[in-house]
Structures are given as structure tokens and as C-alpha cells.
Design a protein around this nucleic acid. Structure first.
Lengths: 357, 357
DNA sequence: CGATGCGATTACAACGTTGTACCCCTCGTC
DNA sequence: GACGAGGGGTACAACGTTGTAATCGCATCG
């Protein structure tokens, strides 16, 4: 790596010594290959696409030209012809929320296994962005959309009636005409609560309530909780229902602080997701409350963050991998044939026992 | 939502009651608009692209036709003509690693502000996938690549010499001909260590060492640590250097267990990232070691997970937002003009004081 | 031996857009 | 009144690919 003589370019900018030479010769096309191989464009196309009726020696010659020119098909041109882009969009609120990061991780893997790329869109917890996304010109770059709304709600169903193949995720919005993959919120929440009950907890607080919500994860998980209490004959204490609009660490922390300050006694907590649970455990820790001795905590999501928290978090695994896989399959199915009847699928859940309860 | 009479379709599938009618009439094109407005295709194109020399009444008529037919330009066709796709690729190891999730979050925001979509590719901690990605046909769907390699290393530089506009992130790989945005690893690590020293800690363990690595985040952060010790005249104890190949929670936990089992005394820990720090704090917690009383812990990354951990994590903020912003700018600059001299930028860092140290 | 079929290849059009060149018309100028 | 300038509009080609139909030669068949 010899330095260029300084004197050579007195007024030169501070350009790097070894700029990469981009052989900016535009990528080669079927035309170039055809010319080199002495055949028609279409024959090259046929070879490239493994069309069967090509004489072996022709195929040979074409292949050599392809190698020689490092020909790779232009996906944009293919898209224009075929209408298929080979990409999906995944719309989530924010990747910084671990649940959605892990969901995106799984979706990208599943899509990749099927040869599809994934454009990730963030709706930033903004209803208008969610609505706008559904008609965004960006969606034309994509064969279909996996959509996980968080702010749109009942009454917004009409916005889902778009031409883009669409699969819904989550529980904010339902539409009988749209494919949908959900988790078993009620059953999972019930199992979480029953687990606490089985360990002798009777005063079980909840973190993450959205007042008045019936569908939506918050509403459904609350329902599972209430069902479990009812089945066990444990009375509901309204004071134990901790509200948290956003399900971030901060809100878990704040909700738990409120509960502690209110002075209500409780010996268990069911947090509506792991992030809230960790925020709540943080508040408990600061208040000198021991987990699980004084208060047992169960979360929901089985996200990685709970694996090595202190203590590690007992939680409900909602089958995120299965959700991603099924959702991608449903979407590809619909892309292939828009007339198939819409399906609704529920992933299986299981309780993950760790140390917090 | 009334149920369809069961008897109507005896052998019917379980189709939903209200399938959405997709008006599958293909999206309208310039041609359709032109026909309706009674002008040529090109005139419509001119109107849509705000070409100045169009008579007001013509523009008027065209606009009405555009509205009437809900015309939206086909981005694929535009891409084919212009060579620009309006999308970037971001390649990271795994989104489930909080650092990369948050980086992706910021990159997507920055790109969105500039009207660009982002395709996220995961390289899954696999060197071959990293190498392959650089020549993947998928990159043709995209105007440029933000690449954050983790497994490629010294000697792999030649793979970076690709035609796709490229901006490197991170410290695994350097190439004078390629734009690059890094964080101040050495300085940040040094600041973290100095902070512990300033609080009276003298036996400072480290978690996350990659033996033999010189460049790369692990090597650089180790260097910062060593520099701080040297400056303070504190001797280095090899037994305090905790190895961790992957920087996941589990490895932080395991490295800390080893340290504890080895019996070496220490009163401080500098973990090379927040995830390792949390894993390590988990092990300390299980071992009954108090943080920060017995052992003070500092992480690196300022990722959200440390905000509400127990205790909350003191860490180095490496300027992730700035990195994302600058990286997108650099990439767009290079897309616009491939001949600009390559730049290397370093984001600013700062220490975030919380409760773990 | 002509008809038929099929393998191999090709020309052409089309996907939807935009750059280029060109035409027509009006207006102002000499 | 001829001319140039330029506004307003159009036709055509091209981006790179693939489906369709057509062509050609050769082998098989009745």
C-alpha cells in the first residue's frame, strides 16, 4: 500500500489514497449475452429460465457468455413484466419494541426461506400512519403486506379493504374478508393467571390495562385474567388493575409505582407483556420488594429480554415463530390466488417457567 | 353479521361470511388517464411530474382524469426507466439483538424522512451469508446498501469492492475506498473504564473479549479499557478479561459465572455491550452479589433494555441516532454521485449515568 | 410422399414510464 | 410579411424482460 506522491496533486482534496475503481460499465443484459453467444435475446432468456427445449450446444454457448459477462437478470424488468416483485412489506409499530424486533426477525427468516425480501415499515404508534400505509404508493414495490396495527381500532375496518394482498397480525382489528394470524390471548392470559393462582397467589395485580377495550391484546388478556379468577372463585379487586397505555418499560415501571403507592396489597402480578413486566420488576426492585418471594411476576410474549433478567421472567410463549411462518404462508397463498377464502389462524401458546413466579 | 344458512352449501368450505370484494381491475396507467383526458400519454406524464409548460386547462382536465381513475404512478416502471428504486437495504446480523433492532429503527426513520424504503436483510452471524449478500441479486432491488458485518474480518476487504453503492457500519472491516460510519469505540470504552476508576474501583473485570482481535468492536473496546488502566497506573490482571464470542445475554451470564467461579476478586465490570452487561448482572444477582454496592457495572450501547433493568444500567451512548442519520446521508450522497471521495465519520459518544455504577 | 408433429429458435409486442426529437401554432420583431 | 423564439403538445424509442405466435427443419406416420 504505497502512498501516492504528495506533490503530484497539490490542490487535491483529502480523497482516500485507494479509491475503489467502480467498473461503472452498466450491468450486462440479455442483449449483450445474446450478441456474444450469437443467438437471439429470447434464447438467452430461455436458457436463463431453464426452458427445456434448447439444444445442449446452444445452452452451452449461452452459459459461457453468461459467465463471461457476469450476466444477472434485472429484477426490476422482471417485475414490470410479471407484476411480482419478490418482496413483502412488514408494518410494525416500532422495531425498538422487543416483541416487534423479534417478530420482524422471524418474519424475515421465514420470507427469506421462500426467496422473498422484506421491506420493514414503522408506523410509530401513529394511527394516521397506519391508515396511510395501507394506500401508500410504496406498497406497489411489494407483492403483499403483513400488517400489525396497534392504533387503528374498531371502526377502521374499511381501511383494510385494499387491493394489496394483506395479512393481519395481532388483535386490534378484525375483518372477515382478510387473512389473519393471531395468538391465543385469552387462553394464554388465563394460563398465566392460573399459574399464579396455583402457586397460592390470591391478590393478583395486572399491568397493561386499556380501559374500555374489549378486543385488542389488552382487552383479551384482561378477559383471560378475569376468567381465571372467576373459575377459581377469587374476587376481582378493581384497584389491582394497573393501566398502561403503551407497553414500554417506562409504563410498566410507572404502573407498578402507582400500585405500590396506592397501598393495595398484592402478591402476584400478571403483566400484559414482558416489557411491562420488566418495567414493573424494576419498580419492585427499587421498592425493596422481592420477586418472586413477596410478589410473583408473570409476563407475556417470551421475548429474549426476559431470559436473563433478574430474576428471569416466567412468561407465556405466544408462538411467535409459528405466527411469522403461518403469516408468510398465508400471504404467499393469497398473492398466488386472490380468490382463496380468507383464513384466520391462531398459534399455539405455552407457559415458560422461569424464576419470577 | 348473520350466518349464512347452513343448508345453502352442503359441501362448502369454511369460507368467511363476508369476503372482501377485491375490485381486481388492474391499477390504471398513464394510458388510461390519457384516453380519458383526451391527451397523449406524455402530456399526462408531464402533468404528473409537474413539467412547467402545460396549459392550465389541459392540466386541469388531466388532473380530473387522474382523480377519477385514482391513478398512481407505477414505481416499478419508473425504476426501470430511471434506474432508481427508492429503496435501501440494511444488512444486520440479527434484529433480535437489541442493538441492531434499535439501529434498524433509527435507519428506517432516517430513510423514511428522505422518502426511501428499507429492505432489512439478516446475515444471521454467518460469514458466508455476509459475503454472499454483497453480490446477491436482491441488491438490484435497491439503490444502495448499509452494511453492518459482524463475522467478516481482516482479509475480506476485497469482497467490499462491489458496484452497489455501499456504506459500512461498525468496526469489523475497513476499506479506504468505502464510506464508513463508526462509533468512538476506544474513547467510549476508555470513558467507561475511567468512570469506574473515578468511583474508586480498581479491580475492573471486562466481559466480551475476543481473544486476538485487534480491530473490531471487541478489540477496540478492550484497547480503551487498557488505555484507561494504564493512564491510571492500575495493573492489568489477565484473569479479569472475560471472553464472550457472541454478545448475547447468555454469553454475558456465562462469562460472569466463570469469573465468579474462578474466585478472582473484582469490584467493577465493564461489559462490551449492554446485552452482555444484563446477562452478567443476572449472574451477579443469582450469586447474591449486589450491584453496584459490591460490583459496579457499566455497559456500552445505551440500548433501551438497560433503562429499566434492575438496577438500571450505566452505559456509553455511542450516538446511534447520529450514526443512522449520517450513514443514510452518506449513502444517498454516493448514490447520487459515485465519484465523490469516500468518507469516514465517527459519531460522538457520551456516558449515561444510571444506577449500576 | 404429403401431412403432421415437434423440437429449436426467432420476431414482435407488451409491461408503464420518461427522454428526445419533432411538429404546430402563436407571438413579437425587424 | 418573413422569421425566430418558444410554449404546448405529440410520436417514438428505450429501460430489460418474457409471453405469444410464427418460422424452419427434421423426423415420423399413414
Amino acid at each position: 500500500m504505497t502512498a501516492a506522491p504528495r506533490s503530484a496533486a497539490p490542490g487535491s482534496t483529502e480523497a482516500a489514497d485507494l479509491p475503489v475503481v467502480l467498473t461503472d460499465a452498466r450491468a450486462s443484459t440479455l442483449r449483450d449475452v445474446a450478441r456474444l453467444a450469437g443467438v437471439s435475446i429470447k434464447t438467452v432468456s430461455n436458457v436463463v429460465n431453464d426452458y427445456p427445449h434448447v439444444r445442449p450446444d446452444t445452452r452451452q454457448r449461452v452459459m459461457e457468455a453468461v459467465r463471461e459477462l457476469d450476466y444477472r437478470p434485472n429484477p426490476t424488468a422482471r417485475t414490470l413484466r410479471s407484476g411480482r416483485t419478490g418482496a413483502l412489506a412488514l408494518a410494525v409499530p416500532e422495531l425498538r419494541l422487543p416483541y416487534f424486533a423479534e417478530l420482524a426477525d422471524e418474519v424475515i427468516r421465514a420470507a427469506d426461506r421462500r426467496g422473498m425480501a422484506v421491506i420493514v415499515e414503522q408506523t410509530n404508534l401513529d394511527r394516521q400512519r397506519e391508515v396511510d400505509l395501507l394506500t401508500s404508493p410504496r406498497l406497489r414495490m411489494v407483492d403483499g403486506l403483513l400488517f400489525s396495527p396497534l392504533e387503528m381500532g374498531a371502526g377502521d375496518e374499511r381501511f383494510l379493504e385494499v387491493d394489496t394482498p394483506l395479512v393481519l397480525l395481532g388483535e386490534r382489528l378484525f375483518h372477515p374478508g382478510v387473512d389473519h394470524v393471531t395468538m391465543r390471548n385469552v387462553e394464554g392470559a388465563r394460563a398465566a393467571t392460573e399459574y399464579l393462582l396455583a402457586r397460592g397467589r390470591r391478590r393478583i395485580a395486572v399491568v397493561g390495562v386499556h380501559p374500555g377495550e374489549v378486543i385488542g391484546s389488552a382487552g383479551l388478556r384482561l378477559r383471560g385474567y378475569l376468567e381465571a379468577l372467576a373459575a377459581a372463585g377469587v374476587p376481582v379487586d378493581e384497584r389491582l388493575l394497573g393501566v398502561a397505555g403503551l407497553w414500554h418499560l417506562r409504563q410498566g415501571d410507572e404502573a407498578m409505582r402507582s400500585l405500590l403507592q396506592s397501598g393495595v396489597a398484592f402478591d402476584g402480578v400478571f403483566a400484559f407483556n414482558d416489557t411491562l413486566a420488566l418495567g414493573a420488576m424494576h419498580a419492585l426492585h427499587l421498592a425493596g420488594v422481592r420477586v418472586p418471594e413477596d410478589v410473583a411476576v408473570v409476563g407475556f410474549d417470551n421475548s429474549d429480554e426476559g431470559l436473563y433478567s433478574s430474576p428471569s421472567l416466567t412468561t407465556i410463549d405466544p408462538g411467535r415463530g409459528e405466527i411469522a411462518e403461518r403469516a408468510v404462508d398465508l400471504l404467499l397463498r393469497r398473492i398466488a390466488d386472490r380468490s382463496v377464502p380468507p383464513q384466520r389462524l391462531e398459534a399455539g401458546f405455552r407457559l415458560v417457567e422461569r424464576s419470577s413466579a
